[in-house]
């Protein structure tokens, strides 16, 4: 087997192994199955043409996700209206404290003791809809880590940011997600009234 054949076999195997995850991520980014398929196909072509930039074969997964993300940004993002970025990238406790202090008391109480019935009945589609409403950077981070199972280091490589940024995005993004789910629970009449001590009455 020549060196080219070996590289092509490695590449094909890597694409096959990650096909479901690439398609799932593309679907969350592009919004429709047809656009997701186009995005994956374009990313595969771009990845092969850029194979020389893959310095470590162990990092194929984050490398190919990064190409998918860059393809989405350059081609599809302009066509899809997305929530504005919040500009929150700090990784310090003060920023987190500020974030939590900005939350309504009812939300913090609910987060500590949500109605199990609400979570048990909650449709997966409702969770994914809440994720889809997050700003791009948080949505992408949560999808890569919590849905597709990338490590923080892999997600950082895929998105071209430091690992500390992934940590802060996880905290911020998950808090935003919780808040969206709290709003769903409240609108569905699930949230219980609370007394001044935060306990359900």
């Amino acid at each position: 087997m020549t060196e080219d054949d070996d590289l092509k076999t490695f590449f094909s195997r890597g694409i096959e192994q990650n096909m479901d995850a690439l398609y799932g991520t593309a679907l969350r980014l592009a919004g429709t199955g047809a656009d997701a398929e186009d995005l994956v196909a374009e990313s595969v072509a771009k990845a092969w043409s850029a194979i020389a930039t893959l310095e470590d074969r162990q990092k194929f997964r984050p490398w190919v996700f990064r190409i998918l993300h860059n393809c989405f940004i350059s081609k599809y993002r302009r066509e899809i209206a997305r929530p504005a970025e919040s500009g929150f990238e700090e990784n310090d406790e003060e920023a987190l404290a500020s974030l939590l202090n900005d939350q309504p008391d009812d939300f913090l109480v609910w987060w500590a003791n949500p109605e199990r019935q609400f979570f048990n009945n909650m449709l997966g589609s409702a969770i994914m809809a809440a994720i889809n409403d997050l700003p791009d950077s948080f949505r992408m981070t949560i999808i890569l880590v919590n849905v597709e199972g990338l490590t923080y280091d892999e997600a950082a490589e895929a998105l071209g940011v430091p690992p500390g940024t992934i940590r802060s995005r996880m905290k911020r993004g998950r808090t935003m997600l919780q808040k969206a789910l709290w709003a769903q629970a409240r609108d569905a009449g699930f949230t219980k009234p609370t007394n001044n001590y935060g306990h359900a009455t």
Binding site: L22, Y23, R28, V40, F119, L123, M128, N146, L177, L181
Partner: peptide
């Protein structure tokens, strides 16, 4: 929530 996201978020190509 992590479990529900993994159950409902993964897709098959």
């Amino acid at each position: 929530l992590n479990e529900r996201m993994q159950e409902s978020g993964t897709s098959k190509a």
